[in-house]
């Protein structure tokens, strides 16, 4: 077996707090924020930023605090710095609405510009933000790396697919304790990255929208704790 979440050496060394995700022969480092770092490509993958989510509610007369965009954009530079990535790929639904890029405030635009000055930024289109925009960086539908295919919505057939869209979270019960946290979830074919945006909710990976996507027997789940990541035994999932 070559595709264990964490090889024995990972767990026994000081690196126990940094589990690795091995997927289609590539090795990834999941980060506490929900970003996935791909060292071989020096690339940071983030999904479902849902920028301008709160402000889009304001259009309908629901005045929610609009700080989510700034808060999400403030997280990214930290992960870029920590991982040393020189490329960031947003796996779609970067904006909550297709018009989101236009309602972006001056301060948030500056945050983006600062980031674009540092790294190569790629936006994949999502169901919430299908149209390309001119905020900087490159807008594409999906990216094919040969052994890996990056896109927004996961499907049931593509091999080596990395996607977002579903905002996965795992709910486990063990000795009477239940806890539900966002998670990375993958089998040998598909990897789904948790939602990165601060205003996003989650969906249990055992719920209906995930049906038929994963081979339950090959399922690997890495939960985001408060201070560390936990690759968990799937028999505790509920």
């Amino acid at each position: 077996m070559s595709t264990h979440d964490c090889s024995d050496s990972d767990m026994s060394s000081d690196e126990a707090e940094m589990p690795l995700i091995k997927f289609t022969g590539e090795t990834f480092t999941p980060l506490l924020s929900g970003a996935l770092f791909w060292p071989a490509e020096n690339t940071l993958l983030v999904a479902d930023l849902h920028l301008e989510k709160m402000s889009s509610f304001a259009m309908h007369g629901q005045l929610l605090p609009p700080y989510d965009t700034g808060a999400t954009l403030a997280l990214l530079p930290k992960d870029i710095k920590a991982s040393g990535a020189n490329r960031v790929i947003c796996l779609g639904d970067s904006f909550h609405r297709d018009e989101g890029p236009r309602s972006l405030g001056e301060q948030n635009r500056q945050q983006l510009n600062n980031m674009i000055a540092e790294v190569e930024l790629l936006w994949l289109s999502g169901n919430h933000d299908p149209s390309p925009h001119h905020l900087g960086g490159t807008c594409v539908n999906d990216i094919d790396f040969g052994n890996l295919f990056l896109c927004h919505e996961p499907d049931k057939k593509t091999h080596g697919q990395i996607a977002g869209h579903l905002h996965p979270s795992a709910r486990i019960r063990i000795n009477g304790r239940t806890t539900q946290r966002p998670c990375f979830v993958h089998d040998e074919r598909l990897l789904i990255v948790p939602a990165y945006g601060v205003s996003t909710g989650t969906l249990n990976i055992l719920s209906h929208p995930f049906e038929g996507l994963f081979d339950r027997n090959k399922l690997k789940v890495t939960m985001l704790g408060k201070k560390q990541l936990y690759p968990v035994a799937t028999k505790y999932l509920i």
């Binding site: 964490c6 767990m11 486990i172 239940t178 201070k227 968990v232 505790y236």
Partner: peptide
Amino acid sequence: GRESAMAEAADELFREAA
């Protein structure tokens, strides 16, 4: 307490793998 649930589930995975 909640974190420890995840930690235990992670330990179990390690035992399974080992």
